[in-house]
Amino acid sequence: MAVKTDDEMIEYVSILAKLELKGDEKERARRDMEKMLDYVDKLSELDTDGIDPLVQVIDTENVFREDMVTNSDDRDNILANAPEKEQGQFKVPKTFN
């Protein structure tokens, strides 16, 4: 699973991660990623052919419920934590002109 950890790869992953890495942060991230991938490469020693990926350890079935509103109108409480709000809405920077 040899993966090349170069600037391009770090740039791409930071876009996916929505992180802006500055100056030496980028190089540190590259080195960390390289070390981590090198380390987790240990898993390639294991033969996992025919083994199904295990997501949930406890056998639970999908949980369905009626589509009913059970909570009350919490708008003010929820908005109390908003960095910016206006007229009962979250306010975000302009997204198009």
């Binding site: 992953v13 930071s14 996916l16 991660a17 295990l54």
Partner: peptide, 22 residues
């Protein structure tokens, strides 16, 4: 960063699914 990479297209099988198989 590591998680975003492990889930990214092209590497999902080799890393994330491999870990779930383990």
């Amino acid at each position: 960063m590591l998680g975003s990479f492990a889930l990214s297209s092209g590497y999902y099988d080799a890393y994330y699914l491999k870990a779930l198989r383990t």
